[in-house]
Design a protein around this nucleic acid. Structure first.
Lengths: 229, 229
DNA sequence: ATAAAGGGATAACGTTGTGTTAACCTTAAA
DNA sequence: TTTAAGGTTAACACAACGTTATCCCTTTAT
């Protein structure tokens, strides 16, 4: 299955639990966000619009049940998967959890492996929608370049590039490690017939380096540039 | 929710359990079929093509796990909901259950009420998926677009759009995040042959932004527009 | 038929940000 | 050290987009 890139928000007031779950979900390829209380969970949910939210129930500043109720009233989160993960294992709590609109209810303690199974099962059931097939998305390390959405992400932070900058970056990133000659770049990005000055490429390269905030483009003096981490 | 008429097949070798579960599911409006061993479960599944199958694992003449595996290899049952209901509550059994393709794994003993909650939760999750497919209603964040009623809702407030505005918005929202080139927009909304001025799209975009009162349409200079929250 | 209302396109002008260049500075190789 | 190649910066021109008012046309009610 293509679990890559699905966003999961975990809310729990115990840092240890947050860390353990986060580690295991990330190892599986999920992108994980955390919150340490109810209010923060709501806030982060609106920020990142996760595909799945794992909620503790006994949390400060709004219980998981309250968070779930609030989210379910909002159209944006009507279809968001929600799992309760809690020490409350009595029947009435569980039934109430499902009545609130949860998709699963898991008792603590639970092994990370088992939680993963349940998470995967949920995504398997729901997740036929956005299969990444032959779209032109490039993923190099922590950099994601999506030419369809015209978006560049670095460590899950969206970076806004101008047209030429984007095209230039996309060209370089399409073959990481390979050196592109200045002439190649001119032909591919500007076109065979367009004539621009010597410094034009440099300036664009600089802006990309600056905006991405990484040294991902290496200069090969006298030859050209290459994308490399 | 429309639980009525959904078909559930229960397979268990203990007649008492069959009876109790059957009673409770029927009380909720489900149509229930039963099987007392693995082979019978397979046979009845093919007969009635149930929406959900509840499988015991320790059964004569094929275990629940075997039944699940066999069903999942057949296209007809690829999307059939399957719940394991078993006394085997060790971790490895549960993980194996999910690996086999189950949608939930429930330990015996369980109260009928709680089982019902889980069954309902599963149908609720799957039901939405089928709903969304048939009619052309788009739901992106807190924006709901209904092409049948010709209505746009933002935070549950109805917004009235003109025809062209609506078609333009619907096109963009049909693939949130994706950038549509100006030419694509012209072809889709205006038609291949119609020729309109340069500023026409902009003006409609502006009206949409103004009426919706949100910044949900992003301009990608030199490229096009995209719907994004 | 006629008036009223609103949709849709366009022109004219305002605004923004991109792309490019020039001028100067830094670095690395011979 | 020398020097060629690239880095950096700011400034500018212009293309692309935003905004507004206006006109024409279709629709709807009287």
């Amino acid at each position: 299955m293509d679990t890559k890139g699905k966003k999961i928000l975990i809310a729990d007031d115990e840092p240890d639990i947050l860390e353990i779950i986060q580690y295991n979900l990330q190892a599986e390829g999920y992108v994980v966000y955390t919150a340490k209380d109810g209010d923060e969970a709501l806030q982060r949910a609106k920020q990142v619009n996760p595909d799945l939210i794992i909620l503790d129930i006994m949390m400060p500043r709004k219980t998981g049940t309250e968070v779930c109720s609030i989210l379910r009233t909002q159209p944006a989160f009507k279809d968001t998967l929600i799992i309760f993960l809690t020490a409350l294992n009595d029947e009435s709590s569980q039934v109430r959890g499902f009545d609130t609109g949860a998709d699963d209810y898991v008792n603590k303690p639970i092994s990370p492996k088992l939680l993963l199974s349940r998470v995967n099962a949920l995504f398997r059931r729901v997740g036929k929608k956005e299969e990444a097939g032959s779209n032109g998305i490039l993923t190099v390390g922590n950099v994601v370049i999506d030419p369809v959405k015209y978006i560049v992400e670095v460590d899950n932070n969206e970076v806004s590039l101008a047209k030429k900058e984007f095209e230039l970056l996309y060209l370089l990133a399409s073959r990481p490690g390979r050196v592109f000659l200045r002439n190649e770049i001119l032909n591919q990005v500007w076109g065979n017939d367009v004539i621009v000055g010597d410094r034009t490429i440099d300036v664009h390269i600089r802006k990309i380096r600056q905006k991405l905030g990484l040294d991902c483009i290496t200069t090969v003096k006298g030859v050209g540039y290459k994308f490399d981490l």
